[in-house]
Nucleic acid binder design. Structure first.
Lengths: 215, 215
DNA sequence: TCCTGATATGCAACTTGTTGCATAGGCAAG
DNA sequence: CTTGCCTATGCAACAAGTTGCATATCAGGA
């Protein structure tokens, strides 16, 4: 039960309606916690009943009214209480890893396209993160050299620093995944050295990793 | 709906009872897909009804009989069919990332212990993976230089190669997490430079990353 | 004009996943 | 000899998450 907490964090960062939250869960916070609009509306209702958040009707020109939620004092103390609890081990779901182990009982080469698709997704997300980093956190150190900003000018807004730390985690994750997927592609290619990487959508499955989006 | 498929893979790798599967989901395959014994028993029952797996009663000395399941032809074709389907985007749940963003509205330093605990967990899991790699895949190349084995002696059992690729992914993930958690600890320390890292359970939150288990 | 799409909210039904408990024999420590 | 733990399976109730659909308004294009 932690969607509540993700919503609290998001509403503390900026109040908003259920719909707006749903949008955010397709971007920013959604990169670390997923939820559909159905779930969000249902949980918002419960949170309002529990007094964690308050609603305010906002009339809009043309559009239906929206209910803008914001966090109450009770909600804030719920959140800070939660911060003190240990997080229980994340439940892992790496479907691609399961498929790779399953591929031993089918045709490994059939996974190549899928792995390439994943690689593209991770490459795009990395580019997105890096753009966000440039936009929101300036041209400082690279994500590969954590702590490089530590000796720089004092920029100690905790919210900003923490958001940057989370973003650096996302960047590190995407880089790691891209490198691993290259490794997997090389392995698949080694197992069945058919198809040469054609020019369309092609990327080297054999040689060194394709260039990342420039940091 | 993919617990079925994870079970199929596990049973193909080695037939076993529900209980044994539950144990495996605490180790090996469980590092990439979690499930409790309740879920496993329920799904096994359904899979048997669907004819994906067959059961065989195995009497045991002293212990209650166990039902040893193995994959039928129908189950195998189900699995290979699944391999061809695109994996839909994994639903992400990075609770620690949510907490970090939430910490801006509480006391960031209160998270230090939790982050350190996570780091220990990841360090231990990395050591576990590396031990498994040494045990099952010999002294070959390091995980940091994927493809190093490619030019070595031909060892092209697909199952083995794919399991190794998955394991390398686990290793890369744990290394990445450890590095990121060091980054986070440095950030937290920068935000509130209280407590010096004492000698008990201490690890440098400031200087370079603590030494990994030797690869 | 009609159709599509974005904003905005929500119900109902269904599937998954979790938690608590129950059974039942054997084995080892105290 | 009793208490707790391990093997081994399972029911029942609940919580969480997904999917399909419904409503309503307005803007812009075919």
């Amino acid at each position: 039960m932690a969607l509540e907490h993700a919503i609290l964090v998001s509403l503390l960062e900026k109040p908003g309606s259920g719909y707006e939250l749903a949008r955010r869960f397709e971007r920013s916070i959604g990169y670390f916690w997923t939820a559909t609009h159905q779930q969000i509306y249902r949980v918002l209702k419960r949170m309002e009943a529990d007094g964690w958040i308050g609603a305010r009707d906002v009339p809009q020109r043309g559009r239906p009214d929206k209910k803008e939620y914001s966090v109450s004092a009770a909600g804030l103390s719920t959140l800070t209480g939660w911060l003190g609890e240990p997080v229980q081990p994340e439940s892992v779901r790496h479907e691609l890893a399961v498929k790779l182990r399953g591929a031993a009982f089918g045709d490994p080469a059939a996974l190549t396209g899928e792995v390439e698709r994943h690689r593209r997704m991770h490459r795009d997300r990395l580019a997105h993160y890096l753009a966000g980093q440039r936009r929101d956190f300036g041209g400082g150190g690279t994500a590969e050299d954590p702590g490089a900003e530590a000796s720089g000018p004092e920029d100690l807004d905790p919210g900003r620093e923490l958001q940057h730390a989370v973003l650096r985690g996302g960047i590190a994750y995407e880089r790691m995944m891209i490198a691993w997927l290259d490794d997997v592609l090389a392995t698949l290619h080694r197992l069945s050295p058919r198809r040469d990487p054609g020019p369309s959508g092609g990327r080297p499955a054999q040689a060194g990793p394709a260039p990342d989006p420039a940091p």
